[in-house]
Computed example of a mutant assay.
Amino acid sequence: MDSGAIRRRLALGMAVLTASGLLAVASPGSAQAAESCSGRKVRTLPFSTGSVRVYRHDGYVCAVTVPKTVSGRKPMSVSVQARGLRPAADVGRYTHHAGPVTVHAGHRCVWLRGSVGTGSVSSGWILC
């Protein structure tokens, strides 16, 4: 092989790696959120600045707050409380999502809360 062929193959390999890296970075935050909770999606609680996605699997309830638009770090929170237990929460400044937060609910009702910036949602007792 001459040096020109080696350079072409290296350039092609770098182009493929760059393209795959860009595709991974360009995927939306919702894809990340969907991967972070196991189980099936049972509810979406929308609000003005985002939504809380709720998943259930083998008595566990998992929730993630996702913003409507991904643009820099902003205050976000998500909390899940099984009836009779303390809430589990994730609060901070995030880019893509807050959570996942998982609790063992068994057959208990759960109360979910989520916020992005000034918008928020509170579910009341659901999934009873």
Rank of each mutant, 00 (worst) to 15 (best):
K68L: 09
R86K: 14
D90F: 11
P87L: 06
K68D: 11
S71N: 15
R93S: 12
D90K: 13
R83L: 00
H96M: 09
S79W: 00
S79I: 06
V91F: 08
M76W: 00
T69S: 12
R73Y: 00
V80D: 02
A98L: 01
Q81D: 03
R86P: 11
V91E: 10
Y94V: 02
K74M: 09
A82L: 05
R86F: 12
A89L: 11
A88M: 04
V80H: 04
S79C: 06
L85S: 14
S77H: 03
P75I: 05
A98G: 09
R83Y: 12
G72E: 08
V70S: 14
L85M: 13
S77Y: 05
Q81F: 03
G72Y: 10
G99I: 01
V80S: 01
V78H: 01
Q81I: 08
G99L: 00
P87I: 12
P75W: 07
H96N: 13
D90L: 10
A89H: 10
A82S: 10
R93N: 14
L85H: 13
H96E: 15
Y94S: 04
A89Q: 13
A89W: 02
S79V: 03
V91P: 07
S71R: 13
G72R: 03
P100N: 14
G99K: 01
L85Q: 15
G84N: 09
S71A: 14
G99E: 02
T69N: 15
G72P: 04
H96S: 15
A82I: 09
P87R: 01
S77A: 08
L85I: 08
R93Q: 06
M76N: 03
P100S: 03
G72A: 08
T69D: 14
V91G: 12
G84H: 12
S79Y: 03
G72T: 06
V80F: 03
T95F: 11
R83N: 09
S71C: 10
L85F: 13
Y94D: 01
V70I: 13
A98M: 02
Y94E: 02
T69Q: 14
K68P: 01
R83E: 15
S77G: 05
P75D: 04
V70Y: 10
S79H: 02
K68F: 00
A82P: 01
V91C: 09
D90H: 07
T95P: 06
G99N: 02
M76H: 05
R93M: 04
H96D: 14
A88H: 02
G84D: 09
Q81P: 00
A98S: 00
A88K: 02
H96Q: 09
A98V: 03
S79F: 12
R83M: 04
Q81G: 05
R73E: 14
A88S: 11
H97G: 08
G72D: 05
P100W: 10
A89M: 14
G92E: 06
A89N: 10
P100I: 02
R83C: 05
P87W: 07
P87F: 01
A89G: 11
Q81E: 14
A88L: 11
V78F: 01
V78K: 05
H96L: 15
V80G: 06
T95R: 08
D90T: 13
G72V: 11
L85A: 13
T69M: 12
V70C: 03
G92K: 06
A82M: 09
S71D: 15
H96G: 06
S77Q: 07
A89Y: 10
R86Y: 11
R93K: 12
A98Y: 00
R93F: 04
V70T: 15
T95K: 04
D90G: 11
K74E: 08
P87D: 07
R83G: 05
D90I: 02
